[in-house]
Design a protein around this nucleic acid. Structure first.
Length: 331
DNA sequence: AAGGATACCAACCGCATGCAT
DNA sequence: TATGCATGCGGTTGGTATCCT
């Protein structure tokens, strides 16, 4: 928590409602830190009576010595009547994993698909609980793979992989993301998706108990294609590609097509585009890929048909991803 | 029981974006 | 077109609670 709510800021700080004190409270002393029950009451009453308007007006008219930004945060994260309180259910947790695998750290986008949950809540949950579990998962795996592969190496690999995924998926280093870009980052001109990651930690005994999202390890071409296309972000191995199952996250665009040469390949995977079409991919044939014209072009060994894997808007992608838990309601 | 370590999470902070002028 | 304001977002901080030794 922050400093007690009775701590007044000396003069107007940058939090007076915007950048560089952009709000118009120039002569006030604004309260910071935890909200008192009285402040909560004032804000709640005001919002119930007047609804949401200009937040700096809310702060002023509700008689709060807070900046509008602080009021907004308090309302959104705590006072909003439709908020669902309490621990995350297993289903919510799985959905968060699912969504994070697609969206990366776009907490507001994830929260928008979890009724009653806030981006802050989800972010905190992810950073504390889920990340911890993933770490436990990875070390449990590392304990199990023999002495020649040290856990430190694995953890490093996981971290690197996570960073790689993040940057490959959405350029998450950019702070604001209100304009979503489903395309690959423009500052990356070429991806060499090989060599493949060497381990498949999600197959590890003792992995976190969300088996449905861990059907296959990240060693497949399908995994890499999905990764490069932003099918998952911070956590590897979460894409839902299942041999012959047609439940893949690779969804929804006609230009998503991965050919099957017909020859017998190892590690075949089928991917359903959400419209009933199945695509079969396998490891061993893809030799390189690169970004071209906003899409990812995959080059296949011996194949004259290079494949454009994706150029899409994130919302299109999301719209066509089947979410089994989307009927959550705030309780 | 006490002190340290760790986890949790509310709130702050800085930046990006949209909009009005 | 430039500027300023309001809002939204994601990363980070740090106080409190809980666990562990």
């Amino acid at each position: 928590m922050r400093k007690p709510a009775d701590a007044l800021t000396a003069g107007c700080d940058l939090m007076t409602g915007g950048i560089g004190g952009s709000n118009h409270s120039n002569s006030c002393k604004l309260r910071k830190g935890l909200w008192s029950p009285e402040e909560d009451d004032k804000l709640m009453n005001y919002m119930m009576r007047n609804g949401q308007g200009c937040w700096s007006d809310v702060a002023r008219n509700a008689g709060l010595q807070r900046c509008g930004k602080s009021c907004r945060l308090r309302w959104i994260n705590y006072l909003r009547p439709d908020l669902k309180r309490g621990a995350f259910s297993v289903q919510e947790e799985e959905l968060i994993l699912h969504l994070h695998s697609i969206l990366g750290n776009r907490w507001s986008q994830i929260a928008a698909r979890l009724p009653g949950r806030t981006d802050n809540e989800i972010k905190n949950f992810w950073n504390s609980t889920i990340k911890k579990r993933l770490k436990i998962s990875s070390s449990a795996f590392s304990d199990n793979i023999g002495s020649e592969q040290k856990s430190t190496k694995l953890e490093t690999t996981i971290d690197e992989h996570e960073q790689q995924n993040q940057s490959m998926c959405f350029d998450s280093s950019s702070s604001s993301s209100s304009s979503l870009q489903g395309n690959l980052p423009s500052n990356v001109s070429h991806y060499d998706l090989l060599p493949l990651p060497e381990f498949s930690w999600c197959n590890a005994p003792g992995r976190m108990d969300h088996g449905s999202y861990f059907h296959e390890g990240p060693t497949s071409v399908a995994h890499q294609v999905a990764m490069a296309c932003g099918a998952y972000g911070g956590v590897q191995g979460m894409m839902e590609i299942e041999e012959g199952a047609g439940e893949g996250l690779m969804s929804g665009r006609e230009d998503l097509f991965v050919p099957d040469s017909g020859q017998d390949r190892q590690d075949k995977y089928s991917m359903d585009d959400g419209s009933g079409r199945n695509y079969v991919v396998s490891s061993g044939d893809m030799i390189s890929s690169h970004v071209e014209g906003g899409g990812l072009v995959v080059n296949w060994e011996g194949g004259e048909n290079n494949v454009r894997v994706g150029e899409w808007e994130l919302e299109d992608l999301m719209r066509e991803v089947p979410f089994p838990f989307l009927d959550f309601q705030a309780e």
